[in-house]
C-alpha cells in the first residue's frame, strides 16, 4: 500500500501574474489621466477653431468640403503623443512600471498600445468634428468636385501661369481616403514611440540629427560639391515628398501635390500637381507602419527582462 505524500503545511502559495487584457485595460485608464491636460487643451483649440469657422461662414458664406486627408494634424498629434505617454516614467531606471509583475518588453508595448487606443479615439473625434463642420457649412462630403491640375510639363512660376494651361478635372475623393488621418496618426505615433522608448535622451538625438544635417549641408557648400548638395537634397525630397515619403504617410501626398499658383492675371488659385494615388498611399502606409513596428520592437527590447546567458 502506498503512503500519501504529505505537503508541508506552511509551504507558501505563490501569487500569479496579471492577465494581459487586465494590464492593457489598466494602462488605458491610467494613460487617460496622464494625457488629460493635453486633451483639455485640444478640446479648447477645437472649440476655438469651431468659432473661427463659424465666423468665416458668417462673413463669406463659403462652405467647407469634407477632406480629412488634407489635415496633417492627426500625424502631428501622433508624433507628440508619446511625450505624454512616457512623461514622468523612469524609462531607463527602476521606475514603478518596471517593478510590476509583467514582462518588461510586453509592458512597454502594452503602454504604447494603450496610447494608441486614445490616439484613435482622438482622431475619430477629430474626423467627426470635421464631418459636422462640413454638414453645418453645407459643404461637400462625398460629391465630386472640380479641381485644377497642372500638366506635368508646366512649372508654376509666380505670375506667369496661363489659366488655359490648367486642366479641369472632375474628381471624387474615395471614402478610403478618410482612413488617412487614422493611418497617418498610427504611423507617426509608432515612429515617435520607438524614438521615445528607445533613446535615453530623445531631444539630444533630435537636435543632434538636425545639427548633423546642417553640418553636412555646410560642408557640401564649403567644398562646392554639387554632387553632395544634390544628393542630400534628393534624399531629403524623397524622404519628405517622394511617392513613399513622409507626406505620403501623413496626407496621402495631398499636401505635397496641392499647391497655390498665381495666374498671369494676378489671381491666386489652388492647383494640383497630380491626383493622390491610393495604391501609393497604401504602400507608403504599409512601409512606414512596418518600419515603425520594427523600430518599436527594437526600442521595447531595450527594456526586456534582464536575462543572463
Amino acid at each position: 500500500m502506498t503512503q500519501p505524500v504529505l505537503q508541508p503545511v506552511l509551504q507558501p502559495v505563490l501569487h500569479s501574474t496579471p492577465r494581459p487584457r487586465d494590464v492593457l485595460r489598466e494602462q488605458v485608464r491610467a494613460l487617460g489621466i496622464a494625457i488629460k491636460l493635453p486633451a483639455v487643451v485640444a478640446v479648447a483649440l477645437a472649440a476655438l477653431a469651431t468659432i473661427l469657422v463659424a465666423s468665416r461662414l458668417f462673413d463669406a458664406g463659403k462652405p467647407i468640403d469634407f477632406a480629412p486627408e488634407l489635415s496633417m494634424l492627426p500625424g502631428i498629434v501622433g508624433l507628440l503623443l508619446p511625450i505624454g505617454v512616457w512623461r514622468g516614467e523612469d524609462r531607463f531606471g527602476a521606475g514603478l512600471l518596471w517593478t510590476l509583475p509583467v514582462d518588461r518588453r510586453h509592458h512597454a508595448l502594452t503602454r504604447v498600445c494603450a496610447g494608441w487606443v486614445w490616439l484613435m479615439a482622438a482622431v475619430a473625434l477629430f474626423v467627426l468634428w470635421l464631418f459636422a463642420i462640413t454638414l453645418i457649412s453645407g459643404g461637400n462630403v462625398t460629391a465630386e468636385s472640380t479641381i485644377l491640375v497642372l500638366p506635368s510639363s508646366v512649372v508654376p512660376e509666380p505670375g506667369t501661369l496661363d489659366a488655359a494651361s490648367l486642366e479641369s478635372v472632375r474628381w471624387t475623393p474615395r471614402p478610403l481616403l478618410w482612413l488617412v488621418p487614422f493611418t497617418s496618426a498610427t504611423g507617426a505615433y509608432l515612429l515617435a514611440s520607438a524614438f521615445a522608448l528607445g533613446t535615453r535622451h530623445p531631444i539630444r538625438w533630435l537636435v543632434g540629427a538636425v545639427l548633423t544635417f546642417f553640418a553636412f549641408l555646410g560642408f557640401a557648400e564649403a567644398a562646392h560639391s554639387r554632387v553632395l548638395l544634390q544628393g542630400g537634397n534628393r534624399v531629403l525630397v524623397a524622404l519628405m515628398d517622394g511617392p513613399y515619403g513622409i507626406d505620403a504617410l501623413l496626407t496621402a501626398r495631398t499636401e505635397s501635390l496641392h499647391t497655390e499658383a498665381t495666374l498671369s492675371t494676378g489671381e491666386k488659385v489652388g492647383v494640383w500637381r497630380g491626383l493622390p494615388d491610393l495604391g501609393q498611399w497604401v504602400k507608403a502606409t504599409l512601409l512606414w507602419t512596418s518600419v515603425g513596428l520594427a523600430a518599436l520592437w527594437a526600442a521595447a527590447s531595450r527594456h526586456r527582462e534582464r536575462r543572463r546567458g
Binding site: 505563490l14 491610467a30 514622468g88 510590476l100 509583475p101
Partner: peptide, 28 residues
Amino acid sequence: LDTGRQGPKARAQVGYVPERQDSGYRAM
C-alpha cells in the same frame, strides 16, 4: 524562481519599497 529568467513571476511574490521615494505618476 530565477529572478532573471522568471522576472514577472518573481516580482508577483514581492512587495517592494525602493530606496527612492519618487514613484513618478505625479498627475495621479
